[in-house]
Design a protein around this nucleic acid. Sequence first.
DNA 1: CCCGTTGTTGCACGTTTCTGCATGTACGGT
DNA 2: ACCGTACATGCAGAAACGTGCAACAACGGG
Lengths: 252, 252
Amino acid sequence: MLAAERRDHLLGLLARDGKVVAKDVAADLGISEDSVRRDLRDLAAEGLVQRVYGGALPVSPAVVDYATRQSVAPDGKRAVASVAAGLVRPGGAVILDGGTTALAVARALPPDLGCTVITHSPTIAVALLDHPGAEIFLLGGRVFKHSAVAYGAAAVEAAQNVSADLCLLGVTGVHPEAGLTTGDAEEAAMKRALSARAAETYVLASSEKIGTASRFRVLPWERVTGVITDADPHDAVVRQVQELGVEVLTAG
Amino acid sequence: MLAAERRDHLLGLLARDGKVVAKDVAADLGISEDSVRRDLRDLAAEGLVQRVYGGALPVSPAVVDYATRQSVAPDGKRAVASVAAGLVRPGGAVILDGGTTALAVARALPPDLGCTVITHSPTIAVALLDHPGAEIFLLGGRVFKHSAVAYGAAAVEAAQNVSADLCLLGVTGVHPEAGLTTGDAEEAAMKRALSARAAETYVLASSEKIGTASRFRVLPWERVTGVITDADPHDAVVRQVQELGVEVLTAG
DNA sequence: CCCGTTGTTGCACGTTTCTGCATGTACGGT
DNA sequence: ACCGTACATGCAGAAACGTGCAACAACGGG
């Protein structure tokens, strides 16, 4: 066993398990714990691992901003998010819009689900850092502070280079006649661009959005596969949407 | 179960459930309540949790932010970050690399300084959301979990479309002969691409990086305008770097 | 081919750190 | 005011750590 080979092995273990225990590795490879410790020390000096008592951890945890973990979504949004997360298939690719509901979806994804998440929200990207299974693709562009997502021409252009099975879209208004609407024209354009890159588009609509309309149209109903909501399935508006041929998934 | 791993687990529980009960965690992990209490005490000392009778609660986001300024960025990095933030001119554009030191720079920017920040780190983008003056441009791409930044081909390509007055680069090794180095080849390429888009490049190098070298070269000294460090200005390595014609800014 | 140099590996040692238990104290609910 | 629970502190055993040392292999020059 070459020294360099050992170091690669350690990095591999770290990537796979998220940790390395000096004692276990030494027993596995049949070498002394001292050698493992020496390797870990060297790797730590190069900034490739974070040395801790008993072994080593990946370097990322220190980078994660705990502040973004704080906000807790209300029950309704969490229920919607949970249903939406269930639509994501292992090995599949999902486009996640910005907004608090989409953030809740990201958090609701099983940590080990192997899937690709495409998003224009840096907040969601950060939230997914500790999901070992998720591959994150971030769409860049100018970041607008009030919605905390990247949009504008650069972001729309970046979106042209991806495609996915599923797009989960947050909107501010869901109305039988007006369709899906939002309060900002640029935002609407971005959501349209995202939706166009996915085979299916589901809308995340917690109950307070149902029956309301904002100024800018995102999509007409023909382009929507389904709506995920926590509203009463017998609600008049919900029934109307269903009659338009749109699937309605109701959550708890 | 490593001690550091346990602490991460506690922070994770806190983020997910909004609280931690010492007794339950001890039973769950099969360890003594004393260990849990000790961990919580340490985390509380760092300001990451709020200790209460029976367990712990999250601290308010504002306090977390303050705490992470204090603890995640040790004095040295904070001093470096403060000097670096002083190089950013009102109305100017700065390219901010990823890493904890660069994150500290973002936080050290005066909130009302009108400037454009270009970054490939979603963490930094999120941190800048509450800086009213900063315009944020995010470079997209595949997000690598261990360093929490976007790089790869897409990110390098995105970087080609921007330009800035100043680039602040974090590295893991600063060595008179080896130049600036880091532990990952893709990361090195990304840093090179960023540096190429700015008129001037300064390197953020807290003292423990000085005199060390990693596997992959980022830039030779000719392409570096200056180094910002908290190391002793009379240090032998620092003097050597100065003799290479590189400006050395020492902090605190 | 030989020998000195260099770098690596495992072992032994003393030191530091962690963990669980015991004790006595402080807190909170009833 | 009482009693059970959580707490801080001290202690001892265990585990992990760093360092120095010796054995060993790889390499290059003579």
